[in-house]
């Protein structure tokens, strides 16, 4: 499933939650680079859209606001026993296109 939004809807340094069916996607604009991450932390389901974003030598990471698990925003990798789902992003002129896998992706709470 593809989700599209206008670049002007996501200014530099901002973030936005978009939906693809039942899937919530946290979209970030970090200095012009766009990253799309499934909003649900695989630990306890915390909302990654509210997470702290940190630049590191290994790339940008988003840290879940609930219990601090951090995920690479390009690969979803974490040193914790879980992995975030990240989605491919393409820029077509002034439009952002995100390819979202079908769900479900659920944390039972």
């Amino acid at each position: 499933m593809r989700v599209e939004l206008e670049l002007e809807e996501l200014p530099l340094g901002s973030r936005r939650l978009v939906r693809a069916g039942t899937v919530e996607v946290a979209v970030f604009n970090l200095d012009g680079e766009i990253f799309a991450v499934n909003n649900v932390c695989p630990h306890r389901g915390g909302p990654l859209i509210r997470g702290l974003v940190q630049r590191t030598e290994a790339g940008p990471f988003v840290r879940c606001p609930m219990h601090g698990w951090a995920f690479c925003m390009t690969s979803g990798a974490s040193v914790r026993p879980g992995r975030a789902i990240v989605y491919p992003v393409a820029l077509h002129g002034e439009r952002i296109a995100i390819e979202v896998e079908a769900g479900p992706f659920e944390v039972p709470r």
Binding site: R44, G45, G46, P47, R50, P65, M66, R109
Partner: peptide
């Protein structure tokens, strides 16, 4: 919910 405006969850 985990944050105001989100959906409720059982744990919270």
């Amino acid at each position: 919910p985990d944050f105001p405006g989100m959906e409720s969850n059982l744990e919270r």
